[in-house]
Design a protein around this nucleic acid. Structure first.
Lengths: 171, 171
DNA sequence: AATTCATTTCATTTTGAATTGAAAAACATC
DNA sequence: GATGTTTTTCAATTCAAAATGAAATGAATT
């Protein structure tokens, strides 16, 4: 029995159960990434690093997740950009290793600032532009659309004032 | 000049500027739908109805948005399901006509209840399951993963307690 | 400066979600 | 119940986004 534990525990300096957990965390984060409109591979990589006590090299990531070097390279780049992971090159080290930052903030900020806000701004201004064109319309239609566009405009305003709140709460 | 206004105003009982505005509202809502992981066509349809004083038949929707009957049929079904639009069949009427409901709530509720919550629940429980497996691990690794999974678990908890707040604020 | 290994780039391929459209079904009308 | 019309269904297609992997680049080492 202790033999069994031993066998299932050590494998190339790594614990087999840890590898399983890491792969599952990769899946969990892949789902979450997808939920927020990001490629699942981004999530996988982050999840793996999140569940890895030591930082990992790209090669290790590639083999543990069974993804291509291209996907890994681009995914790592984006994660570094969004400050979700930290690249670290020890002095005598040939490779760069990546460690997960453990805060939510990068993700929340990324989602709010890069996805939500710009698109809300955009549709906001399109609606405003449409409102300025209502004057041309015949009265009965005009009145209906005035109230409706006004309503849509208020939604946007509310949503935008709500964003900082989310950031403060989750970030 | 009044001739110009007249010409650009009446066309088959409909105002040409209204059609343009409707098409643009369809685009605006298509973007928003996409943002929340829904097919853009859903948004288009809703946007058109939102900007239409009178309810529209499927046929009218198909031709104004230039989409297929299949897309229209399925999109209408989903919008009715999520209570974003209202089907109405007048007594002497051959076709069903659809009118937009003007509240945000259906969308917010749909997104929160059908997309966010279930997936948060799912990853939550996967993480909980992983936590129960940590006991097998060798101590140093175990301690690290304990704190990290605990952290991920707290994120989920926070996010879940946050949802009702969003609903109340936007819904 | 030549070699080796890590990383990036990017043209191609894969994948999967959304859309199409034709056929079937449902529905209304005579 | 036969006819004409609207709506649904679903196999096939389309298409954009993601993934691949081989070649180019870059960096360290001898």
């Amino acid at each position: 029995m202790s033999k069994l534990v031993f066998e299932s525990t050590i494998r190339g300096g790594e614990d087999v159960s840890v590898l399983k957990i890491q792969r599952e965390m990769a899946e969990v984060f892949a789902d979450l990434a997808d939920l927020f409109g990001n490629p699942a591979s981004l999530g996988s990589i982050y999840g793996l690093l999140f569940a890895s006590p030591e930082p990992l090299s790209m090669e290790e990531i590639v083999e543990r997740l069974d993804i291509s070097t291209g996907t890994a390279s681009q995914g790592l780049r984006r994660l570094v950009e969004m400050q979700a992971i930290l690249p670290q090159k020890e002095d005598g080290d040939r490779v760069t290793r990546y460690g997960a930052k453990l805060e939510l903030r990068p993700f929340v900020a990324m989602f709010l600032n890069q996805q939500l806000l710009p698109r809300l701004e955009h549709s906001s201004s399109r609606i405003a532009e449409l409102q300025s064109r209502l004057a041309d319309l015949t009265p009965p239609t005009r009145r209906v659309l005035e109230t409706r566009l006004e309503r849509a405009s208020k939604w946007h305003h509310r949503a935008k004032t709500f964003l900082p709140l989310i950031r403060r709460f989750l970030g």
